[in-house]
Design a protein around this nucleic acid. Structure first.
Lengths: 180, 180
DNA sequence: TATTGTTATACTCTATAACTATA
DNA sequence: TATAGTTATAGAGTATAACAATA
């Protein structure tokens, strides 16, 4: 465990990372906001999946995911195929145009990172990736009942710690109509 | 330097950190949004400073800073004292109430981090802090002409790399009225 | 004429709630 | 009755632009 001063500093640095994210966001093409870019990147990394699974990976409410996905679909970057096993479900699938777009996004991001981190060693970048991944895992990468599905579809995941601390709320779902 | 796959993974993890930030944001008191909390934390860490300096540290446009500061000031958490050296300027100063509030924020944040990172070693937390600080520095902690002031007021800063790559735009300032 | 700070406006991201169509 | 997904609405963060006061 760490001391209070360390936690405070970590909180500050987490807040400061926003500046980096904003910089990365500024190089995106005008018709592809960060939300859609995240959708494309996630599908590119983990393959086809359902809305709920995507919402879980992105750790945002499904309503948010739905909007980002709708935008990407309207541009023809992804298809929302029917799920033969459940007619309520939709299988998200990257189209060739989506792959193209994703390649473009990758090049832009890579170029900026390579420029900014030109004096970083391969090992340092690896360490940062490792620690950030661990951080996300510690903050409940696996929440609620859908947690089991974590390692199912995404085989080459990051080695998440699914048995960590219990998390109160459920992230990918909103309370639903509990009319008291 | 690192490879493209690493940069792509780093970009994904940077995006994913948003979930952690959102979790931290959820434990804030209702009258203190993240923007105001960042203002208080920065003043608590670096001491009194001007608007422009604060905007630079937060790496957001000064218009944004102005709004966050106005909110904090309206709650009595900070004073905007006149700058004897420049009547256009204002010196931001934490009030006793602001210090109280900051203490509260610190306790909330620390509690959550301590809970989530209970299985992290002191050293691991330190490494993450180190790498995130370095990341922010690499992304132009010091931009534009105000860069010189970086180490002036904040002595115990983080050892930023002020002589890094040249940055195109200026972050704490908007184009101003260039009526063509 | 340039700079400091403020304000108005617009856009993105997010969560909550209500709704549909299935299960 | 519960779940998958959609949509409407509201709140926060940010950037751009225009403005006021001062340098």
């Amino acid at each position: 465990m760490a001391g209070q001063a360390q936690y405070e500093e970590l909180a500050r640095q987490l807040s400061a990372v926003g500046a980096v994210k904003r910089d990365l966001g500024r190089i995106l093409p005008a018709d592809c906001p960060a939300g859609s870019a995240a959708v494309l990147a996630t599908l590119g990394r983990h393959g086809d999946m359902r809305m709920s699974k995507l919402a879980e990976i992105l750790a945002v409410d499904m309503s948010v995911t739905s909007r980002h996905v709708a935008h990407a679909a309207s541009r023809g970057w992804i298809d929302r195929l029917p799920d033969p096993a459940d007619k309520r479900s939709r299988i998200l699938h990257l189209t060739p145009a989506g792959l193209d777009r994703l390649g473009d996004l990758s090049r832009r991001t890579t170029r900026l990172l390579a420029e900014r981190l030109s004096d970083w060693s391969d090992d340092e970048v690896g360490q940062l990736i490792h620690l950030m991944t661990r951080l996300r895992d510690s903050f409940g990468d696996c929440r609620s009942q859908t947690a089991r599905a974590c390692a199912t579809t995404a085989g080459a995941e990051t080695g998440s710690a699914c048995a960590a601390a219990p998390v109160a709320e459920e992230t990918t779902r909103t309370p639903a109509d509990i009319r008291k």
